[in-house]
Nucleic acid binder design. Structure first.
Ligand SMILES: Nc1nc2c(ncn2[C@H]2C[C@H](O)[C@@H](COP(=O)(O)OP(=O)(O)OP(=O)(O)O)O2)c(=O)[nH]1
Ligand SMILES: [Mg+2]
Ligand SMILES: [Mg+2]
Ligand SMILES: [Zn+2]
Length: 581
DNA sequence: GCCGTTTTCGGCCCGACTGTTTTCAGTCG
């Protein structure tokens, strides 16, 4: 079993335990374990083989044993036993908005409902309203929840799609009189690669007019909650949006709360309790009756706890609290430290602009140097360059360099295909003519793990290949990642000095956060690149920076935060690294 | 089930909103 499967089993057990009415903290322990495995930057099989399972926070001896059973036998006795009591399909009811573990159990015990279809039938037949603690309104809400689920599903949305929608809604609400501050919060602010909903925050003395405007926005399909400080709506496109409105003097704790993550919040609140303070979105309440402490900024809130400011992108309870407590919080990469972009396309392949136009646009955005990296010959669909065309392009690059003067440098590169059989698309002597060589996969992404991994390793072990771009080839929500032994790849990258990309395109974000984090642990250098095909796409860089921050990447490990001379020196080392082995 | 400057048992974050409730449970953030 892989990480995803182990995590899914634990998540299902968590739901089954909650439905059965077990101690809720026991169920939560399974849920936390599921998340811990899901967020692991290593293959759980490798961690188990190394005997390090209990090193994972949230995994104790009991769960470690259960993981080992799953990995060796492919199933879990505890799960099978639980499934005899609580049908696993019952867990599906929890996907319906308004149905939690208690209702799921009630529906199972009183009406014998075990899945979504049966629930829909019972609700349509008016059977739910007759149950104790239920009524016509509850039944209607559940019907609505089922309809929403059928219409829109409950898939998470790629960050790149949610982001502009969130900004747009926020701009609309910001225009209402009385609004003093606005923010996108939740997983979008933390730059998770996908989001379940959009969480918006507004500071205003009087919330009512804002709530009114919010629930009557034209893109709102239905209103699922409308209170004095909080409202929730579903948009016509199926996206859920939560809005919280509070007075500005509580902005710091409010933004802290609504940015999350939940796990980060819980840790902060536990920390507060140890200091005799109760923390919520309104502020800190001392247990001894001293007056409430209000925080207008997040910095003040962290300061109240004796902590340095923690960037939203780090707030996942993945060690940032411990790091903050011990003064070991990483000084993660910031967008203004990025001085180059090492992956982009021009009209020579499938881009839109000329070499000079891309370079000029990059320079205007503050770049000191770039690499032009058009596709290679075999990628016909993207008009990959023949060797002849590649050599012609070198002349254009030389001209553009002349035109732009000494403060800017265009490196001549390629994004070379690693073919299905593992062969590289250009011969070594051609690669030797280039300043910067990217290798990447676009075809045959469904190969078995050994084969796909070997293709990447072939590229890594070529002395001319400087960087692996978007290593897994995934397109979030569209195309699954290639099945790779990432640990082996990252180790090889570390040994050879091959750079791994964090592709900033929000449909890719590849390496993703947890692999970027693992890359840092293994001493791999990364580059954060836009893979721009036109000038506008340079502005996607912040998604890559956010992802790199989530990977705890610091500027010394991000090569396009380096001056050009430092990068060129690094690239020269690679052939030596290979012969040294 | 996890975990420990309250160390191996007893805690485990805290509040908004809804509906059916005569006092609050359930769900969700
Ligand atoms: N203290 C506390 N805060 C919570 C809890 N649940 C949610 N929050 C806060 C932190 C979350 O980031 C924020 C928004 O909640 P969401 O359910 O929308 O989660 P989030 O945006 O993090 O992830 P998502 O992509 O929406 O699933 O509210 C909770 O149980 N306790
Ligand atoms: Mg959210
Ligand atoms: Mg939300
Ligand atoms: Zn590309």
């Amino acid at each position: 079993m892989n990480n995803r499967e182990v995590a899914h089993t634990f998540a299902t057990i968590a739901d089954m335990l909650a439905i059965r009415g077990d101690n809720i903290h026991r169920a939560l322990a399974y849920r936390r374990a599921a998340e811990a495995i899901q967020d692991l930057g290593q293959d759980v099989n490798q961690v188990a083989a190394a005997g390090k399972l209990t090193d994972i926070p949230g995994i104790g001896q009991t769960l470690a044993d259960k993981i080992k059973e799953m990995l060796t036998t492919g199933h879990l006795t505890f799960y099978d036993k639980l499934a005899q009591e609580i049908p696993p399909s019952l867990v599906g009811l929890l996907r319906v908005d308004g149905i939690g573990p208690k209702r799921a159990r009630q529906l199972y015990e009183t009406l014998g409902i075990t899945n979504l279809d049966e629930l829909a039938q019972a609700a349509q037949a008016g059977k739910l309203r007759e149950l104790p603690k239920m009524g016509a309104k509850s039944e209607a809400k559940i019907l609505q929840g089922i309809a929403d689920l059928e219409k829109h599903g409950d898939e998470r949305i790629p960050l790149g799609e949610a982001w502009p929608l969130a900004q747009e809604m926020l701009a609309t609400l910001a225009a209402i009189s009385g609004v003093t501050q606005t923010a996108v919060a939740g997983s979008a602010r933390r730059m998770r690669e996908t989001v379940h909903d959009i969480d918006l925050l507004i500071a205003a003395a009087d919330a009512a007019p804002i709530m009114d405007a919010f629930v009557s926005l034209p893109q709102v399909e239905s209103v699922s909650g409308r209170g004095p400080t909080k409202s929730s709506v579903t948009l016509v496109n199926g996206l859920q949006v939560d809005l919280r409105v509070l007075p500005a003097d509580r902005w710091g704790t409010l933004l802290l709360y609504f940015t999350g993550s939940k796990a980060h919040n819980v840790r902060l609140r536990e920390l507060a309790l140890k200091q005799g303070l109760s923390l919520n979105e309104y502020g800190f309440t001392p247990a001894d009756g001293r007056p409430e402490i209000l925080c207008a900024t997040e910095e003040e809130a962290y300061q109240t706890l004796g902590l340095p400011y923690i960037l939203p992108t780090l707030r996942e309870d993945r060690g940032e609290i411990e790091a903050a407590l011990s003064g070991a919080l990483p000084d993660v990469i910031r967008i203004e430290q990025i001085v180059s972009d090492l992956h982009m396309h021009t009209a020579w392949s499938d881009g839109k602009l000329s070499v000079l136009e891309m370079a000029t646009a990059a320079k205007a955005r503050g770049c000191q140097y770039i690499a032009i990296t058009d596709h290679s010959a075999s990628l016909g669909i993207a008009h990959g360059l023949s060797v002849e065309r590649l050599r012609q392009q070198a002349e254009k690059i030389r001209q553009a360099n002349e035109a732009l003067g000494p403060d800017f440098r265009i490196l001549h590169g390629t994004e070379m295909e690693i073919k299905a059989d593992g062969a590289l698309d250009y011969p070594d002597e051609v690669l030797a003519e280039l300043d910067f060589v990217i290798a990447s996969l676009h075809v045959s992404l469904k190969q078995p793990r050994e084969q796909a991994t070997q293709r990447i390793l072939n590229a890594i072990h070529n002395p001319h290949v400087d960087m692996i771009a978007h290593p897994t080839g995934r397109l979030i929500g569209e195309r699954p990642p290639a099945d790779l032994d990432m640990e082996t790849i990252l180790q090889a990258a570390a040994e050879t000095g091959t750079i791994m990309e964090v592709n900033a395109n929000p449909h890719r974000l590849d390496l993703k956060d947890i692999y970027a984090r693992r890359a840092m642990e293994l001493g791999v250098k990364i580059a954060i690149n836009t893979d721009a095909h036109n000038a506008d796409q340079f502005d996607l860089l912040h998604f890559g920076v956010g992802t790199a921050q989530r990977g705890w990447a610091t500027a010394v490990n991000v090569v396009n935060a380096w001056p050009l001379a430092q990068l060129l020196a690094w690239l020269q080392e690679k052939p030596k690294n290979l012969t040294r082995r």
